[in-house]
């Protein structure tokens, strides 16, 4: 067992453990935090594969963006600190079954598919190359996925705005416009008192 294997299993444990904890935790804030660990583990995988750019983007988009948005919406939720109810047994079984089927399906697809290299030499992942590849419309260009991803982010943003819109607009005290030449008000009350003084 060499160092690479150890690192791989550590990362895998982080991803899977974080995911499981995120699903099973009874506190919604903690779920978000475990999700964060899971996503960081995935970023770790990208680093492990020497794809630093993807790893950094993973951190920026998912950890810095999505998880922060999730945490924000949790802040805005009522009663976010309370323990959530345990799901009904039927529902739990159904979810477990669905997850298991998905897992088996994926495993099957991976085992059946024979992965073939494209034959092209690996691209040196420098900023310039990545930028050129991202915007290229040739066979291995990424312009379409790039656009689709930005659509995804737009959708996420709109969703957040919709959540944050309040139905009830709270009454706000409108600051009166300050007039330029307000006449100094003289204290009439004071005048009266002056005569009453002993």
């Amino acid at each position: 067992m060499d160092a690479r294997t150890i690192i791989f299993y550590l990362l895998a444990a982080t991803v899977i453990g974080g995911g499981l904890m995120a699903v099973t935790s009874r506190k919604i804030f903690r779920s978000a935090v475990f999700l964060l660990f899971s996503l960081i583990g995935i970023a770790g995988f990208y680093f492990f594969l020497d794809q630093e750019f993807i790893a950094a983007v993973q951190v920026v988009v998912y950890v810095g963006g999505i998880v922060v948005l999730i945490l924000f919406s949790i802040f805005l939720t009522h009663g976010s600190g309370e323990d959530m109810k345990k799901p009904a047994l039927g529902r739990a079984v159904f979810s477990a079954l669905a997850a298991a089927i998905g897992c088996v399906l994926t495993m099957y697809l991976i085992s059946e598919h024979t992965f073939q290299g494209s034959g092209k030499p690996a691209l040196e992942p420098s900023a310039g190359n990545i930028g050129a590849q991202m915007l290229s419309v040739t066979e291995y260009g990424f312009i379409l996925p790039f656009e689709v991803v930005s659509m995804l982010l737009l959708a996420a943003m709109i969703g957040c705005i919709v959540i944050a819109i309040k139905v009830k607009v709270p009454e706000q005290k409108v600051m009166p416009k300050i007039k330029e030449e307000t006449e100094p008000v003289e204290l009439e009350v004071v005048e009266e008192l002056k005569t009453e003084e002993v």
Binding site: V33, E52, F53, A56, V57, V60, V67, V68, A127
Partner: peptide, 17 residues
């Protein structure tokens, strides 16, 4: 790292969490 600048801004976005 070949993405030094991006790396720093990615990591610093973690601090908010």
């Amino acid at each position: 790292i070949n993405i030094g600048v991006l790396y720093v801004s990615a990591i610093s976005s973690l601090a908010v969490i």
